[in-house]
Design a protein around this nucleic acid. Structure first.
Lengths: 143, 143
DNA sequence: GCGAACAATTTCAAGATTAAAACTTTTATG
DNA sequence: CATAAAAGTTTTAATCTTGAAATTGTTCGC
């Protein structure tokens, strides 16, 4: 096994550790301060970016989770009045999901606090680190 | 909201996307090639590093998951003969877990293939990227 | 147009995950 | 010593997650 593969393995372990730590922190934050969860936040964030709504499949691709998963999270959000389903008229297989006005309002509060919390988590990195990291991540994503 | 917090939010989104993509790839790899799963691999990897065994709580802290979670994953690994529980003699509350000989043998094959797969995933990064990233991650972990 | 492949979503069963509560054992304190 | 606090683990209920199967709808080749 090559030297390079060991270095990449080490990198992966660190990456995972940082990401999981941050996720745990954000989950706790959402739970305690907003009575919400990470998957709910993720779905709402995706719908906030796609303000006109998007299909379940698109949602699943954006979030890198299974489509069955999207169904159950959207089910709960719908039950809470945060999102709504709307059947496509062009293709009756497709279902469009979008934030309700209430969901939009709720998310904007959530997003503001979430951004501040993320900034807190990465406060230990200076601006040069942030830029370098973002750049490298962009390259790592291309596969 | 400051400019810096927006940049850090962007960084976080990229970080998550890369990490989730890699996790999805590794999960698929473990499932198809080895009939295993990521949490099982993680537990076995932790026990491989702590060859003499470690307590459930240590395991939970190492992996950044809840102790209830460790219980169920270890339950299954134990049922499959990969790990064994051994009550502590000094403190009867604690339970030590360790790889069985079969588990050790199984893991060594798994680990070799896993390392190669990780190297494949991060093949798009050159050695300088890998070093820079590892360094920054070390800094990000300090909180 | 028929029928077969394909596509979008949901359902299902199994496993993973969490937080909180329950249980057992140890330690500390009066 | 008694007993209260703390610690390690498991259990429980709820949510999340996956991959596969089932359902429903569309498209395409003939």
């Amino acid at each position: 096994m090559s030297e390079g593969s060991k270095r990449r393995l080490k990198l992966w372990i660190r990456l995972l550790s940082v990401t999981r730590g941050a996720e745990a922190h954000l989950r706790e934050f959402l739970r305690v301060r907003h009575g919400s969860t990470l998957p709910r936040f993720d779905v709402m964030a995706a719908l906030y970016r796609r303000r006109d709504g998007c299909s379940m499949s698109e949602l699943s691709r954006m979030l890198l989770v299974s489509n069955g998963n999207v169904t159950t999270v959207v089910d709960r959000l719908e039950a809470d009045g945060m999102v709504e389903r709307r059947p496509s008229e062009a293709d009756r297989r497709t279902v469009f999901v979008s934030l309700t006005p209430q969901g939009l309002q709720h998310f904007e509060v959530l997003a503001r606090d979430h951004e501040a919390e993320v900034a807190k988590i990465f406060a230990g990195l200076d601006d040069a680190d942030v830029d370098a990291l973002t750049e490298i991540m962009k390259r790592a994503a291309k596969r």
